[in-house]
């Protein structure tokens, strides 16, 4: 092994980094929407798992991964609405409601997956999306495979990021969403229905997080397993903070965590003498260090975490 790792190794690393970052990116994007509208979405982890289950179940029942994706995303939106019902409609503490969503999704998917696929026997593999190389571009050195020879969901993520960014910062709907998170009372005075805005953004948030779960099943492992989100939803929460509550920033942070994960896998294979747990810890430790390091100057939307009650003074 030469001192400088060769280009092809880096290309492989980048490609798997992008693939591993995609679920985190989807969830972080969903989290940005929720927190921008004034609600912590600690339930991202559960919504991801729920989306993964929906994708596996939908694909298993219909045979089509597209149907699976739709099912997963819809289930995610339902979970988002449930979170909204709890912490916007019923004014339950947002962290409590999010944790409750995680536990509900973990319990329900464990039960339903056994009932549907008989997970005791190792589960049932489902079909998924193949990678779609972009002509010419996929042959580029270094970044060709990473950016232009991926599955459709990877391509969808930057498109969604662009759409969300434009909507958030260039449209009236986006202004309303941000206003609901920064100053719900002012928004309310200006005629914005803060409650409705938060319901919609949480439904979208759940749908995005679930899309991340769909990527796990339909593009990575082609099978559902209990607890397969394995903390990615929590890493997404860190990505939101690192990304300064901006869609682009959050997805870039997710990319960083994905690369850590890819590095971990790579090192696990190339250095079997080094205990592999060190590399499993790496993404979590990197999230933690990044949180401590970059926390200064980060400011969350002013009203995130607060219950908005029109009648209170």
């Amino acid at each position: 092994m030469s001192f400088l790792p060769d280009i092809s190794l880096i290309a492989v690393l980048l490609a798997s980094g992008v693939r591993l970052a995609t679920p985190i990116g989807f969830a972080a994007l969903g989290g940005v929407l929720a927190e921008r509208s004034g609600v912590y979405n600690v339930g991202l982890e559960g919504m991801m798992l729920w989306g993964a289950f929906g994708a596996a179940a939908g694909t298993y029942l219909t045979g089509s991964p597209v149907a699976g994706l739709v099912a997963g995303v819809l289930l995610g939106a339902v979970a988002g609405l449930l979170l909204a019902l709890l912490c916007v409609g019923l004014a339950v503490n947002q962290l409590v409601a999010g944790i409750a969503i995680n536990l509900l999704c973990a319990g329900l998917t464990a039960f339903l997956a056994r009932a549907l696929f008989g997970l005791a026997g190792g589960g049932t593999a489902v079909s998924g999306f193949a990678s779609l190389p972009v002509p010419y571009l996929s042959g580029l050195p270094l970044i060709g495979t990473a950016l232009f020879n991926q599955d459709p969901l990877v391509y969808m993520l930057p498109v969604l990021v662009a759409v969300v960014t434009i909507c958030l910062y260039r449209t009236q709907a986006g202004l309303r969403l941000r206003a609901a998170g920064e100053s719900p009372r002012a928004a309310d005075s200006a005629g914005v229905n803060v409650t409705a805005v938060r319901y919609v953004s949480l439904a979208l948030s759940g749908a995005f997080a679930a899309a991340g779960g769909c990527h796990l099943v339909l593009c990575q492992v082609y099978i559902f397993s209990e607890g397969m989100s394995a903390g990615k939803g929590f890493i997404a929460l860190a990505a939101i903070i690192l990304g300064r509550w901006h869609p682009v920033g959050a997805v870039v942070a997710a990319l960083f965590f994905g690369l850590c994960d890819a590095l971990q896998l790579q090192l696990q294979f190339s250095n079997p003498l080094v205990p592999y747990q060190i590399f499993l810890i790496l993404p979590f430790a990197a999230s933690l260090v990044a949180l401590v390091w970059f926390n200064k100057g980060a400011r969350q939307p002013a009203a995130t975490g607060m219950v908005f009650d029109r009648e209170a003074r």
Binding site: A100, L103, L104, C105, G107, A110, F111
Partner: peptide, 23 residues
């Protein structure tokens, strides 16, 4: 019946208790 039904029940308990906090 699969024992994992207990996990589902625990999840439901949590969500309902969380909801009941509002009341």
């Amino acid at each position: 019946v699969e024992g994992t039904v207990v996990d589902a029940i625990v999840g439901l308990v949590v969500i309902l208790v969380a909801g009941s906090l509002a009341w």
